[in-house]
Amino acid sequence: MALVDRYLHAVKFWLPRHQKDDIIAELSEDLRSQIEDQEAELGHKLTDAEVEPILKRCGSPMAVAERYLPQRSLIGPALFPIYSVVIRSLIFYFLLPWLLLWMGITIFSPDFRADHPGAALFASLEPWWLACTYSLFFNTLAFAVLDRTQARSRLVNDWNPRALPAELDHNRIPRGGTIFELTFSVATLVLWVQLGAFRSVFHFFGLTITLSSRWPYFFWGLTVLSLAGIALACMNLSNPRWTRLSASLRLGIDCYSWGLVYWLCRANLLQSLSGSDVPSTEAAAFVNSINFWMRTSAIWVLVIGAIVLALDVRRILRIAPVA
Protein backbone atom coordinates (compact mmCIF):
# COMPACT_ATOMS: atom_id res chain seq x y z
CA MET A 1 0.00 0.00 0.00
CA ALA A 2 3.06 2.27 0.15
CA LEU A 3 2.52 3.12 -3.49
CA VAL A 4 -1.09 4.18 -2.81
CA ASP A 5 0.03 6.31 0.15
CA ARG A 6 2.65 8.00 -1.99
CA TYR A 7 0.06 8.63 -4.67
CA LEU A 8 -2.46 10.08 -2.19
CA HIS A 9 0.25 12.25 -0.67
CA ALA A 10 1.08 13.63 -4.11
CA VAL A 11 -2.59 14.37 -4.85
CA LYS A 12 -3.03 15.99 -1.44
CA PHE A 13 -0.28 18.51 -2.18
CA TRP A 14 -2.37 20.18 -4.92
CA LEU A 15 -5.73 20.20 -3.14
CA PRO A 16 -7.35 23.20 -1.44
CA ARG A 17 -6.31 23.25 2.23
CA HIS A 18 -9.76 23.02 3.79
CA GLN A 19 -10.76 20.01 1.65
CA LYS A 20 -7.50 18.06 1.64
CA ASP A 21 -8.33 15.44 4.31
CA ASP A 22 -11.90 14.90 3.20
CA ILE A 23 -11.02 14.35 -0.46
CA ILE A 24 -8.05 12.13 0.33
CA ALA A 25 -10.13 9.96 2.70
CA GLU A 26 -12.73 9.41 -0.01
CA LEU A 27 -10.22 8.79 -2.80
CA SER A 28 -8.25 6.47 -0.55
CA GLU A 29 -11.39 4.48 0.21
CA ASP A 30 -12.14 4.09 -3.50
CA LEU A 31 -8.61 2.98 -4.39
CA ARG A 32 -8.47 0.49 -1.52
CA SER A 33 -11.86 -0.92 -2.52
CA GLN A 34 -10.60 -1.41 -6.08
CA ILE A 35 -7.45 -3.12 -4.80
CA GLU A 36 -9.46 -5.38 -2.47
CA ASP A 37 -11.79 -6.40 -5.31
CA GLN A 38 -8.83 -7.28 -7.51
CA GLU A 39 -7.11 -9.16 -4.67
CA ALA A 40 -10.29 -11.19 -4.13
CA GLU A 41 -10.38 -11.95 -7.84
CA LEU A 42 -6.69 -12.96 -8.07
CA GLY A 43 -6.53 -14.64 -4.67
CA HIS A 44 -3.37 -12.87 -3.50
CA LYS A 45 -2.13 -9.49 -2.26
CA LEU A 46 -1.41 -7.13 -5.12
CA THR A 47 2.20 -6.32 -5.83
CA ASP A 48 3.35 -2.77 -6.60
CA ALA A 49 3.45 -3.73 -10.28
CA GLU A 50 -0.23 -4.69 -10.09
CA VAL A 51 -1.23 -1.59 -8.14
CA GLU A 52 0.53 0.68 -10.59
CA PRO A 53 -2.02 0.32 -13.46
CA ILE A 54 -4.87 1.17 -11.04
CA LEU A 55 -3.15 4.40 -10.06
CA LYS A 56 -2.21 5.19 -13.65
CA ARG A 57 -5.83 4.80 -14.72
CA CYS A 58 -6.87 7.15 -11.94
CA GLY A 59 -4.69 9.87 -13.49
CA SER A 60 -1.67 11.93 -12.59
CA PRO A 61 -1.85 13.47 -9.08
CA MET A 62 -1.99 17.00 -10.48
CA ALA A 63 -4.73 16.12 -12.98
CA VAL A 64 -6.82 14.40 -10.28
CA ALA A 65 -6.45 17.33 -7.88
CA GLU A 66 -7.23 19.83 -10.63
CA ARG A 67 -10.71 18.35 -11.09
CA TYR A 68 -11.58 19.29 -7.52
CA LEU A 69 -10.60 22.91 -8.04
CA PRO A 70 -12.93 25.53 -9.48
CA GLN A 71 -12.30 26.35 -13.15
CA ARG A 72 -9.86 29.22 -13.21
CA SER A 73 -8.41 31.35 -15.96
CA LEU A 74 -6.29 34.45 -16.04
CA ILE A 75 -8.42 35.92 -18.81
CA GLY A 76 -11.86 34.38 -19.24
CA PRO A 77 -13.48 33.32 -22.53
CA ALA A 78 -15.55 36.54 -22.70
CA LEU A 79 -12.52 38.84 -22.94
CA PHE A 80 -10.03 36.43 -24.48
CA PRO A 81 -10.94 37.21 -28.14
CA ILE A 82 -10.26 40.94 -27.53
CA TYR A 83 -7.03 40.09 -25.70
CA SER A 84 -5.98 37.88 -28.59
CA VAL A 85 -6.59 40.67 -31.16
CA VAL A 86 -4.60 43.16 -29.05
CA ILE A 87 -1.66 40.77 -28.62
CA ARG A 88 -1.64 39.82 -32.31
CA SER A 89 -1.72 43.50 -33.33
CA LEU A 90 1.09 44.22 -30.91
CA ILE A 91 3.20 41.43 -32.37
CA PHE A 92 2.47 42.00 -36.07
CA TYR A 93 2.30 45.80 -36.18
CA PHE A 94 4.87 46.75 -33.54
CA LEU A 95 7.25 44.04 -32.31
CA LEU A 96 7.77 42.17 -35.59
CA PRO A 97 8.38 45.32 -37.73
CA TRP A 98 10.83 46.53 -35.08
CA LEU A 99 12.69 43.21 -35.20
CA LEU A 100 12.71 43.23 -39.02
CA LEU A 101 13.98 46.80 -38.97
CA TRP A 102 16.79 45.80 -36.63
CA MET A 103 17.65 42.84 -38.87
CA GLY A 104 17.61 45.07 -41.95
CA ILE A 105 19.90 47.61 -40.35
CA THR A 106 22.20 44.86 -39.06
CA ILE A 107 22.46 43.19 -42.46
CA PHE A 108 22.64 46.22 -44.74
CA SER A 109 24.41 48.84 -42.63
CA PRO A 110 28.17 48.28 -42.21
CA ASP A 111 28.33 51.45 -40.07
CA PHE A 112 25.85 49.97 -37.56
CA ARG A 113 27.82 46.72 -37.40
CA ALA A 114 31.04 48.67 -36.89
CA ASP A 115 29.46 50.65 -34.03
CA HIS A 116 28.19 47.43 -32.36
CA PRO A 117 30.94 44.80 -32.69
CA GLY A 118 30.44 41.20 -31.48
CA ALA A 119 28.03 40.73 -28.61
CA ALA A 120 27.18 44.44 -28.62
CA LEU A 121 25.20 43.75 -31.79
CA PHE A 122 22.74 41.58 -29.85
CA ALA A 123 22.88 43.95 -26.88
CA SER A 124 21.51 46.62 -29.24
CA LEU A 125 18.33 44.52 -29.32
CA GLU A 126 17.79 45.06 -25.61
CA PRO A 127 15.15 47.81 -26.02
CA TRP A 128 13.19 45.38 -28.21
CA TRP A 129 13.31 42.66 -25.54
CA LEU A 130 12.19 45.17 -22.93
CA ALA A 131 9.36 46.36 -25.18
CA CYS A 132 8.29 42.71 -25.69
CA THR A 133 8.33 41.95 -21.98
CA TYR A 134 6.63 45.12 -20.82
CA SER A 135 3.99 45.27 -23.54
CA LEU A 136 2.99 41.61 -23.20
CA PHE A 137 3.10 41.70 -19.40
CA PHE A 138 1.12 44.91 -18.95
CA ASN A 139 -1.46 43.98 -21.58
CA THR A 140 -2.02 40.61 -19.93
CA LEU A 141 -2.19 42.25 -16.51
CA ALA A 142 -4.67 44.88 -17.76
CA PHE A 143 -6.96 42.23 -19.24
CA ALA A 144 -6.70 40.05 -16.13
CA VAL A 145 -7.75 43.05 -13.99
CA LEU A 146 -10.51 43.94 -16.47
CA ASP A 147 -11.78 40.37 -16.30
CA ARG A 148 -12.18 40.64 -12.55
CA THR A 149 -13.98 43.97 -12.51
CA GLN A 150 -17.35 45.31 -13.55
CA ALA A 151 -15.77 46.65 -16.73
CA ARG A 152 -16.00 43.16 -18.23
CA SER A 153 -19.78 43.02 -18.05
CA ARG A 154 -20.00 46.53 -19.50
CA LEU A 155 -17.70 45.55 -22.39
CA VAL A 156 -19.32 42.22 -23.14
CA ASN A 157 -22.97 42.66 -22.17
CA ASP A 158 -23.80 46.33 -22.73
CA TRP A 159 -23.79 46.62 -26.48
CA ASN A 160 -25.97 47.98 -29.19
CA PRO A 161 -26.14 46.63 -32.75
CA ARG A 162 -26.44 50.23 -34.02
CA ALA A 163 -23.18 51.18 -32.31
CA LEU A 164 -21.19 48.46 -34.08
CA PRO A 165 -18.63 49.83 -36.58
CA ALA A 166 -19.57 49.71 -40.24
CA GLU A 167 -17.91 47.07 -42.36
CA LEU A 168 -14.55 48.31 -43.58
CA ASP A 169 -14.37 48.71 -47.36
CA HIS A 170 -10.71 48.11 -48.23
CA ASN A 171 -11.25 49.08 -51.85
CA ARG A 172 -12.70 52.53 -51.20
CA ILE A 173 -10.31 55.46 -51.78
CA PRO A 174 -11.08 58.30 -49.36
CA ARG A 175 -11.75 61.48 -51.33
CA GLY A 176 -9.94 63.56 -48.70
CA GLY A 177 -6.73 61.61 -49.28
CA THR A 178 -7.01 61.94 -53.05
CA ILE A 179 -7.62 65.70 -52.87
CA PHE A 180 -4.63 66.06 -50.52
CA GLU A 181 -2.41 64.09 -52.89
CA LEU A 182 -3.55 66.17 -55.86
CA THR A 183 -2.98 69.46 -54.04
CA PHE A 184 0.40 68.32 -52.73
CA SER A 185 1.59 67.14 -56.16
CA VAL A 186 0.49 70.34 -57.92
CA ALA A 187 2.04 72.52 -55.18
CA THR A 188 5.32 70.56 -55.35
CA LEU A 189 5.45 70.90 -59.10
CA VAL A 190 4.70 74.64 -59.06
CA LEU A 191 7.21 75.32 -56.25
CA TRP A 192 9.79 73.14 -57.94
CA VAL A 193 9.55 75.03 -61.24
CA GLN A 194 9.28 78.42 -59.54
CA LEU A 195 12.44 77.78 -57.56
CA GLY A 196 14.21 76.90 -60.74
CA ALA A 197 15.29 73.72 -59.02
CA PHE A 198 16.92 72.37 -62.18
CA ARG A 199 19.91 74.59 -61.40
CA SER A 200 22.80 73.18 -59.38
CA VAL A 201 23.76 76.37 -57.55
CA PHE A 202 21.46 78.13 -55.10
CA HIS A 203 21.84 81.36 -53.17
CA PHE A 204 20.07 81.75 -49.83
CA PHE A 205 20.70 84.44 -47.18
CA GLY A 206 24.26 85.10 -48.32
CA LEU A 207 25.07 81.42 -48.61
CA THR A 208 25.94 79.65 -51.84
CA ILE A 209 24.92 76.03 -52.00
CA THR A 210 26.40 73.98 -54.79
CA LEU A 211 24.91 70.61 -55.63
CA SER A 212 26.58 67.83 -57.57
CA SER A 213 26.20 67.44 -61.31
CA ARG A 214 23.75 64.59 -60.66
CA TRP A 215 21.18 66.94 -59.13
CA PRO A 216 19.23 67.50 -62.41
CA TYR A 217 18.45 63.77 -62.48
CA PHE A 218 16.64 64.20 -59.17
CA PHE A 219 14.93 67.34 -60.44
CA TRP A 220 13.48 65.54 -63.45
CA GLY A 221 12.76 62.47 -61.36
CA LEU A 222 10.66 64.47 -58.91
CA THR A 223 8.92 66.32 -61.73
CA VAL A 224 7.90 63.03 -63.35
CA LEU A 225 6.78 61.73 -59.92
CA SER A 226 4.59 64.79 -59.32
CA LEU A 227 3.00 64.45 -62.77
CA ALA A 228 2.34 60.75 -62.15
CA GLY A 229 0.84 61.61 -58.73
CA ILE A 230 -1.46 64.17 -60.35
CA ALA A 231 -2.55 61.67 -63.02
CA LEU A 232 -3.30 58.95 -60.43
CA ALA A 233 -5.13 61.40 -58.15
CA CYS A 234 -7.34 62.51 -61.10
CA MET A 235 -8.02 58.87 -61.92
CA ASN A 236 -8.95 58.15 -58.30
CA LEU A 237 -11.21 61.19 -58.15
CA SER A 238 -13.20 59.95 -61.13
CA ASN A 239 -13.42 56.42 -59.70
CA PRO A 240 -12.88 56.40 -55.92
CA ARG A 241 -12.36 52.63 -55.72
CA TRP A 242 -9.16 50.68 -56.11
CA THR A 243 -9.02 48.68 -59.32
CA ARG A 244 -6.22 46.36 -60.39
CA LEU A 245 -4.99 49.14 -62.72
CA SER A 246 -5.05 51.99 -60.20
CA ALA A 247 -3.58 49.82 -57.42
CA SER A 248 -0.80 48.66 -59.77
CA LEU A 249 -0.10 52.28 -60.73
CA ARG A 250 0.05 53.15 -57.01
CA LEU A 251 2.59 50.33 -56.53
CA GLY A 252 4.64 51.55 -59.50
CA ILE A 253 4.62 55.18 -58.32
CA ASP A 254 5.54 54.21 -54.75
CA CYS A 255 8.31 51.94 -56.01
CA TYR A 256 9.66 54.78 -58.14
CA SER A 257 9.34 57.43 -55.39
CA TRP A 258 11.03 55.37 -52.64
CA GLY A 259 13.75 54.35 -55.11
CA LEU A 260 14.28 58.02 -55.93
CA VAL A 261 14.53 59.00 -52.26
CA TYR A 262 16.98 56.11 -51.66
CA TRP A 263 19.10 57.31 -54.56
CA LEU A 264 18.94 60.90 -53.19
CA CYS A 265 20.24 59.69 -49.83
CA ARG A 266 23.13 57.76 -51.36
CA ALA A 267 24.15 60.30 -54.06
CA ASN A 268 26.22 62.78 -51.95
CA LEU A 269 24.37 65.59 -53.70
CA LEU A 270 25.60 68.43 -51.49
CA GLN A 271 28.93 69.42 -53.02
CA SER A 272 29.91 72.60 -51.26
CA LEU A 273 28.71 75.44 -49.10
CA SER A 274 30.23 78.87 -49.01
CA GLY A 275 29.51 82.27 -47.57
CA SER A 276 31.36 85.32 -46.40
CA ASP A 277 30.70 84.54 -42.70
CA VAL A 278 31.32 80.79 -42.89
CA PRO A 279 34.88 79.49 -42.50
CA SER A 280 35.68 77.01 -45.27
CA THR A 281 36.74 74.23 -42.87
CA GLU A 282 33.43 74.44 -40.98
CA ALA A 283 31.51 74.53 -44.24
CA ALA A 284 33.33 71.41 -45.49
CA ALA A 285 32.64 69.62 -42.21
CA PHE A 286 28.98 70.59 -42.43
CA VAL A 287 28.73 69.29 -46.02
CA ASN A 288 30.37 66.02 -44.99
CA SER A 289 28.06 65.56 -42.02
CA ILE A 290 24.95 66.27 -44.12
CA ASN A 291 26.05 63.75 -46.76
CA PHE A 292 26.96 61.21 -44.06
CA TRP A 293 23.61 61.68 -42.31
CA MET A 294 21.78 61.15 -45.61
CA ARG A 295 23.78 58.01 -46.42
CA THR A 296 22.98 56.67 -42.94
CA SER A 297 19.31 57.40 -43.44
CA ALA A 298 19.22 55.39 -46.67
CA ILE A 299 18.63 52.14 -44.79
CA TRP A 300 15.56 53.60 -43.07
CA VAL A 301 14.25 54.74 -46.44
CA LEU A 302 14.76 51.21 -47.75
CA VAL A 303 12.92 49.63 -44.82
CA ILE A 304 10.00 52.07 -44.80
CA GLY A 305 9.79 51.83 -48.59
CA ALA A 306 9.65 48.02 -48.35
CA ILE A 307 6.76 48.28 -45.85
CA VAL A 308 4.87 50.71 -48.11
CA LEU A 309 5.38 48.45 -51.14
CA ALA A 310 4.25 45.40 -49.15
CA LEU A 311 1.05 47.26 -48.26
CA ASP A 312 0.59 48.20 -51.93
CA VAL A 313 0.99 44.55 -52.96
CA ARG A 314 -1.51 43.52 -50.27
CA ARG A 315 -3.97 46.07 -51.65
CA ILE A 316 -3.66 44.54 -55.14
CA LEU A 317 -4.16 41.02 -53.75
CA ARG A 318 -7.26 42.13 -51.84
CA ILE A 319 -9.00 43.35 -54.97
CA ALA A 320 -11.37 40.61 -56.03
CA PRO A 321 -10.91 39.61 -59.68
CA VAL A 322 -13.69 40.72 -61.96
CA ALA A 323 -16.01 37.78 -62.59
Binding site: I23, R57, C58, R67
Partner: peptide, 11 residues
Protein backbone atom coordinates in the same frame (compact mmCIF):
# COMPACT_ATOMS: atom_id res chain seq x y z
CA UNK B 1 -17.18 6.81 -14.85
CA UNK B 2 -13.70 7.15 -13.44
CA UNK B 3 -13.04 8.23 -9.88
CA UNK B 4 -11.38 11.46 -11.00
CA UNK B 5 -14.63 12.53 -12.61
CA UNK B 6 -17.16 11.11 -10.16
CA UNK B 7 -15.91 12.51 -6.85
CA UNK B 8 -15.55 16.13 -8.01
CA UNK B 9 -19.03 15.83 -9.58
CA UNK B 10 -20.47 14.52 -6.30
CA UNK B 11 -18.93 17.46 -4.47
Amino acid sequence: IDEGTLYPLLR
